[in-house]
Computed example of a mutant assay.
Amino acid sequence: MTVLNRSVTDVLAQQPTASKDCYVLLDAQDWMNDDQLNALWDEISRTAAPGARVIFRTGGREDILPGRVNHGTLSRWSYQADASARGFRNDRSAIYGGFHLYHFKG
């Protein structure tokens, strides 16, 4: 294991294109401004291999990406509403309001 004290965006910027299969973000995006959120999702989209998945939690119930992440970037991803609802029901952490899953379309 390697511990890095850097932003996920910066770490992903150093990774090869289409090299990652999954991303776990917890609730970090709740604290990002729109520029930070877009920079993160640009790097996630660049480094995502076909079929990659992103899971994250939110403090509130609603997905925070629509209307904040550029449409061109977000349109490359498919929101998995049913799986997100199941993930929330099965989430053993009682402090989050939402659980979300996106699947990379390419």
Rank of each mutant, 00 (worst) to 15 (best):
Met1Glu: 11
Thr2Ser: 09
Thr2Gln: 14
Val3His: 05
Val3Gly: 04
Val3Asn: 03
Leu4Phe: 09
Leu4Ser: 12
Arg6Asp: 08
Arg6Trp: 06
Ser7Met: 02
Ser7Leu: 02
Ser7Tyr: 01
Val8Lys: 08
Val8Tyr: 09
Val8Arg: 03
Asp10Lys: 03
Leu12Met: 12
Leu12Gln: 05
Ala13Tyr: 04
Gln14Asn: 10
Gln15Cys: 12
Pro16Ala: 14
Pro16Trp: 05
Thr17Ala: 09
Ala18Pro: 06
Ala18Met: 14
Ala18Leu: 12
Ser19Ala: 13
Ser19Asp: 05
Lys20Ile: 10
Asp21Ile: 11
Asp21Cys: 12
Asp21Glu: 14
Asp21Leu: 14
Leu25Val: 08
Asp27Arg: 04
Ala28Phe: 06
Asp30Gly: 02
Met32Ala: 07
Asn33Tyr: 04
Asp34Cys: 07
Asp34Gln: 10
Asp35Ser: 14
Gln36Tyr: 06
Leu37Met: 04
Leu37Lys: 00
Leu40Asn: 01
Leu40Pro: 00
Leu40Ile: 01
Asp42Pro: 01
Arg46His: 03
Arg46Phe: 02
Thr47Gln: 01
Ala48Leu: 11
Ala48Asn: 12
Ala49Glu: 00
Pro50Phe: 04
Pro50Tyr: 06
Gly51Asn: 08
Ala52Arg: 03
Arg53Ala: 11
Arg53Gly: 06
Val54Pro: 01
Val54Asn: 01
Ile55Asn: 00
Phe56Val: 02
Phe56Ser: 04
Thr58Glu: 02
Gly59Arg: 09
Gly59Ile: 13
Gly59Ser: 10
Arg61Asp: 08
Arg61Trp: 10
Ile64Gln: 09
Leu65Ser: 01
Leu65Met: 06
Pro66Tyr: 07
Pro66Lys: 09
Arg68Lys: 09
Arg68Ile: 02
Val69Gln: 00
Asn70Val: 14
His71Asp: 15
His71Val: 14
Gly72Phe: 12
Thr73Pro: 03
Leu74Ala: 05
Leu74His: 03
Ser75Lys: 14
Ser75Met: 09
Ser75Ile: 08
Arg76Glu: 12
Trp77Val: 02
Ser78Lys: 15
Ser78Asp: 14
Tyr79Pro: 00
Ala81Trp: 12
Ala81Thr: 10
Asp82Val: 13
Ala83Lys: 08
Ala83Pro: 03
Ser84His: 02
Ser84Met: 03
Ser84Arg: 01
Ala85Ser: 13
Gly87Asn: 04
Phe88Pro: 00
Arg89Trp: 03
Asp91Gln: 06
Arg92Tyr: 15
Arg92Gln: 15
Arg92Lys: 15
Ser93Tyr: 10
Ala94Phe: 13
Ile95Asp: 13
Ile95Ala: 10
Tyr96Arg: 08
Gly97Met: 10
Gly97Glu: 07
Gly97Phe: 07
Phe99Asp: 01
Phe99His: 08
Leu101Gly: 04
Leu101Pro: 03
Leu101Glu: 13
Tyr102Leu: 05
Tyr102Ile: 01
His103Asn: 09
His103Met: 11
His103Asp: 11
His103Val: 10
Phe104Pro: 00
Lys105Gly: 14
